[in-house]
Nucleic acid binder design. Structure first.
Lengths: 240, 240
DNA sequence: CTGTTGATTCATCGGATGTTGAATGAATCA
DNA sequence: TGATTCATTCAACATCCGATGAATCAACAG
């Protein structure tokens, strides 16, 4: 027998891990990996310090675990919406739908505590803007698969565009998205409260047109023009 | 006599401060405020640990000084280009010129070591995406004056646009810019080297059209339409 | 030359850091 | 029930942290 009733033991242990993960997610998002001590996290979770190393091996292990708890769900949401935007095969999708699929799950995440809420969104921003992110590989694990799929969708919409130009435009679009996820409060501060990031639909109604137009501005003149010989047949995904 | 020849004393001291500032700028940009110890900075500057507290009071004081050394020069550049974009009074400026003035100095900064180069650019990104930035106030000091002036220029181009919509679009534009300043290496990584951030002109030739189109997408339909009564006469800068 | 100023060095302070091994105790299993 | 597993607690480890007061030394003024 391998899959029995959870057992009060494992169940309690699992609850402890969740308490630690919740405290770590909140504190890491506010202060950064190096700005928080394991003692602070343990105190916030109302558990002993040693529990963190027992359950997660190390502080770094806990940091990784905070992301791992959310990765699958977020990736699933983004790819699901992309598939819906792609619709039936053969026909190029609408740019607006692809941009919405690219952006919406990440913005809606902010107001959905089950998906991590603002703390997890801030944490993603922290990791995405950290020049030492590579050595951890969390961003790659989280976003590489969706990135190439989204760029393929963009390539369908602008068939003549060289792959490098698609990468540039995609990079800019992600930048716009990341900053919108950051919730630094600077928009509210500068606008003296005239703007608020509390309603995700209010954000999306403005962010999606901005990014959509950005793509058009970068790639629009490739829409119906023929690709040059060197650009044709260049795959967006890397070759083995 | 108060302003004599510098004196070898002050001159040597000033050189020490510069050594510390350079080391701190590099290390803070790579590892963050909490990721670097004053001992590491002192070692990189080949000076005693106590020198940091002697010259800058505290670690926080050094952090602030790293920004202060660059603030004036950067603000001057940005406002100078904006003034040139605004041209002669009365006539609305070209959107492309305003966007270029908004973006170019920050991108050119990356390849100009005298302005801080990539390290200072990364440091700005770190500070801009930190939710605890407010308590330090560095970003406000650095960007508030220019922000309002740029938004006024945008308002001239889209006379019917409500101030809140201008704030939204400006916020998105800054996000695109900030991510481009980050130099995370992810663009190069995803594109397998097909794109590179080394040449600022290559970046600007793509980034400016992206942001320009973003503004158009958000505010374009306000360009020649009349403002509503509630929007008219609403100043962009805060009232006293 | 003499006394003073101020930059630099040295040693050290109290405390916080991540991590660990041993002890504890309760749920689980034979 | 008795043995065992394992989550949890406790105490401690070695190290690093930011900061400082006293000592040192050279440049400067008179």
């Amino acid at each position: 027998m391998e899959k029995q009733a959870p057992g009060r033991r494992r169940q309690a242990a699992e609850a402890s891990k969740e308490r630690i993960l919740n405290a770590a997610e909140k504190l890491f998002s506010e202060q950064g990996l190096d700005g928080v001590s394991v003692r602070e996290i343990a105190a916030a979770a109302k558990l002993d310090v040693a529990m963190i190393n027992y359950h997660f091996g190390s502080k770094r292990g806990l940091y990784r675990a905070v992301f791992h708890r959310r990765i699958d769900q977020l990736t699933e949401q983004r790819l699901g919406e992309l598939d819906r935007a792609l619709g039936h095969a053969g026909e190029p999708p609408q740019l607006r739908d692809v941009v919405h699929a690219l952006i919406a799950p990440n913005i809606l995440l902010r107001s959905n505590r089950a998906l991590g809420g603002v703390p997890f969104a801030r944490l993603i921003v922290r990791e995405m803007t950290d020049p030492n992110e590579r050595e951890r590989g969390i961003i790659s694990e989280m976003f590489d698969p969706t990135a190439y799929r989204f760029m393929e969708a963009i390539a369908q919409i602008f068939p003549g565009a060289p792959r490098a130009e698609i990468h540039w435009a995609y990079h800019f679009a992600i930048g716009t998205l990341v900053h919108a996820m950051a919730s630094t409060g600077r928009l509210e501060y500068l606008s003296r409260g005239a703007c608020a990031m509390s309603d995700p639909e209010v954000i999306l109604a403005r962010l999606v047109p901005f990014v959509e137009s950005g793509f058009e501005g970068c790639l629009g003149h490739f829409r119906r023009s023929a690709a040059t010989a060197s650009d044709r047949n260049s795959a967006l995904t890397p070759n083995p």
